[in-house]
């Protein structure tokens, strides 16, 4: 449970950045709770405060019954922190040596350590690599070993920061499945997960908090967040070529608009009640400038809700907010 958590970073003499700005929420036992926001929203800072790696300037959090300010060691016993991926391991040691070391740090009883390591290597399908140096393992195997390291002391609460960042789609799918089926369903862990992938939050999280500029902008189940959109449909137009955002100036008055650019393609998403009416206007606007590749009418995603609430995009590619997020309220 977080109560009015504030974390300031001083940049120059008088400049201050509120990386976390009065954040309060409660996570239920056994829940997967998602913190969704673009890079720089304050998600990692919040995770670091909860894991006692940062001392908050105001407010507090209670984790597994322990206060982060009063009893940081108690908090650390209750949590497993998965951040940094493959860089969180000793590459010159083997998986077994890494896990033995962290088992000692986390106070896993000596008698149980071997059994626990055996179980985790089996779980992560790393048994045949148990005695090889970590530096010789693939990125995916290192990520799996990082998960095993996080679980070595069987913590009831897991803090997972951007678990699929930089992973290939196949392995990202494996990680998402593992979090949902193994960690949540089978092991019953309480999970706080940060991500800037809306699909990930939608797929995994029972509740999601949108974080932007250090503040929680909305908090609910993915379904209810999507239902909160005033417009029920989204018109998505995919074009070949680069479009100037100014072209859509006149749409701002009537719709919530999100433009993304990636690999020479432009994606235009507009929340609307009447996609048919809007379609001809959009086509007329863009046809002379770019080639229209596809037009889809779909339901709002969590990203559409996020754009609607903040005016910013979640994706890195079009994160040059606010220029690319041409939303009018």
């Amino acid at each position: 449970m977080l109560k009015g958590l504030v974390k300031l970073f001083k940049k120059k003499r008088k400049d201050e950045i509120k990386a976390v700005d009065g954040v309060s929420f409660e996570i239920k036992e056994g829940e997967i709770f998602g913190l969704l926001g673009p890079n720089g929203a304050g998600k990692t800072t919040l995770i670091k405060c909860i894991s006692t790696l940062l001392i908050p300037d105001e407010g507090t959090a209670t984790v597994g019954g322990y206060d982060i300010n009063k009893d940081p060691l108690g908090v650390r016993r209750m949590i497993g922190v998965l951040t940094g991926g493959e860089r969180s391991l000793y590459w010159k040691l083997t998986p077994v040596e890494n896990l033995k070391y962290f088992a000692a740090l986390y106070g896993v009883p000596r008698k149980k350590t071997a059994e626990r390591i055996d179980y985790l290597l089996e779980l992560m399908d790393l048994k045949n690599k148990a005695r090889e140096r970590v530096e010789r393992l693939s990125s995916g195997m290192k990520q799996k070993l990082s998960i095993a390291r996080t679980l070595i002391h069987d913590p009831p609460i897991l803090l997972i920061d951007e678990p699929t960042l930089g992973l290939d789609p196949y392995f990202a799918r494996f990680i998402r499945g593992f979090i949902k089926d193994e960690l949540h369903t089978k092991l019953g862990k309480t999970i706080l997960l940060t991500t800037h992938y809306m699909d990930e939050a939608d797929e995994l999280c029972e509740r999601v908090a949108f974080m932007y500029n250090g503040k929680i902008k909305a908090l609910d189940t993915p379904v209810l967040l999507k239902q909160s959109m005033p417009q029920e449909q989204v018109l998505e137009v995919k074009c070949l070529g680069d479009l100037d955002n100014e072209v859509f100036k006149h749409f701002r008055e009537s719709v919530s608009l999100n433009i993304g650019k990636q690999d020479g393609l432009t994606y235009i998403r507009m929340n609307t009640e009447n996609p048919e009416d809007l379609l001809s206007r959009v086509i007329d606007t863009v046809r002379e400038r770019v080639k229209v590749l596809s037009v889809i009418v779909t339901s709002p995603t969590l990203e559409d809700v996020f754009v609607h609430l903040t005016g910013a995009s979640l994706k890195d590619d079009y994160s040059q907010r606010p220029q690319n997020a041409l939303r009018d309220r």
């Binding site: 006692t52 650390r76 922190v81 940094g84 860089r87 969180s88 391991l89 740090l105 106070g107």
Partner: peptide, 18 residues
């Protein structure tokens, strides 16, 4: 450099012992 400092300092061990 290893990237492990935060992980050892977020364990329930006082840094003194490390």
């Amino acid at each position: 450099f290893y990237g492990t400092l935060e992980h050892i300092l977020s364990s329930p061990v006082r840094p003194f012992y490390i």
